[in-house]
Design a protein around this nucleic acid. Sequence first.
DNA 1: AAGTGGTCTAGACCACCAT
DNA 2: TGGTGGTCTAGACCACTTA
Lengths: 249, 249
Amino acid sequence: MNGTISAADIGRGPLYKRVKSLLTQSLADGEWKPNEAIPSESRLAERFDVSIGTVRKAIDELTAERILVRQQGRGTFVAAHTQSRFLYHFYHVVDEDGIKRFPTPELLQFRRIRAEQNVATRLGLDKGARVIHARNLLRIEGYPVEVNDIYVDAEVFEGLDRDTFSNRPGTIYQLYQERFGLNIIRTSEQLRAVAVDESEANLLDIEVNAPVLQVDRIAFTYHSKPVEYRRSLVNTSRHVYQSDQEATG
Amino acid sequence: MNGTISAADIGRGPLYKRVKSLLTQSLADGEWKPNEAIPSESRLAERFDVSIGTVRKAIDELTAERILVRQQGRGTFVAAHTQSRFLYHFYHVVDEDGIKRFPTPELLQFRRIRAEQNVATRLGLDKGARVIHARNLLRIEGYPVEVNDIYVDAEVFEGLDRDTFSNRPGTIYQLYQERFGLNIIRTSEQLRAVAVDESEANLLDIEVNAPVLQVDRIAFTYHSKPVEYRRSLVNTSRHVYQSDQEATG
DNA sequence: AAGTGGTCTAGACCACCAT
DNA sequence: TGGTGGTCTAGACCACTTA
């Protein structure tokens, strides 16, 4: 016994999977924050008492999942929601010609409410739990394109107020990350075509009952913990929702 | 010189990338067909004159891209569109409760036509090129859910007839693969909400102008070569389109 | 020049499958 | 039992960044 924590001492299965699990736990605990470098591969090999190759294999998987980002010569960093990363991975609305343009958000509503069953279920909460509800209108080049309703656990986001939410510099996921240390690493979406209601039609400047794309999204952080539920209505007359599968060879 | 082809002799960049490229080329050439085993790692290491570790890294990437599939103790196989694989990766329509059910197709139309500009562009052909057009109605548990129009290059699919297309045992991508050696490894989709026309409304048994999900898909084989363009109209009143991003940690 | 990640090798041993 | 992929190690060298 020398005080170092050996990855061989805990759990079962392949060593590199245990190393990966230890790294993920440190990330969830906030030992290393987004945009920070984690220790070098050789230091991690010492810390976990395994060879560098084993650490590399664990980090390989975490970079494949875009939880970590390697930079040759500099180090390995905790992935952060820079605007370009956000644009690329979680925002799917593009121009008809396929070009992604960043939308300008306008906060229409911000309030604390009790969660109804639907919202509570998707956030993994009990019905009636305190949640924050925000409604945004997104414009691209001045034209309204999307209205969304966002729900988050009010306890997790204790202290979040309208101004902070509204006057943030970057994306909402950057806010979650920088202000609350919650890094969104996965989303699951369900899409439907629906006829737009009168109130949303007015916001989107289209006719009542016009077809719009309804996107229900749950956003997850480490260990598949749901952080945000969001319902978006998208006017797809000038824009489309892009969905690609499988990386190219 | 001993007659073996050394990966070090061709191209530039990392060795394992060159090995990967040689493997991809063999796949595109049909040296190994879907469901067949490729040579063992040690044989490939000899053939390309590199170490096993380098071959493993090349195969690692090809399995991550689901082009190859490893089975411990048996070998490494060329990925095939089994029904379950197809269900999981390229078919996104699920029940409201999130369960995927396989649809039953009915071939409504099968003909050879000249490509209009839109179709030609997406298939990488010239306007007026000969293409095959097929229209299908998909039912889930008896209810019509989706109508699609499929376009493929008639030269590539020379000899394909209505009966073969209609009375196939599995999915359409299995047909492409088994009959023409074309393996679909990537798709790109653009989604819109649109009001349904009269003819499609009749097929889907819904009201004219009801909102439906329009999915434009281009399916690619190796080297990003477009193989199929397909436009689907989905009735999302009882089903949804599922879209997940990022593998979970 | 020192430190980081990236590549490549060689070999040992394990887990699994077919026979 | 022999062959396959899966894990793990140890070390050498390269490419890149920072100071």
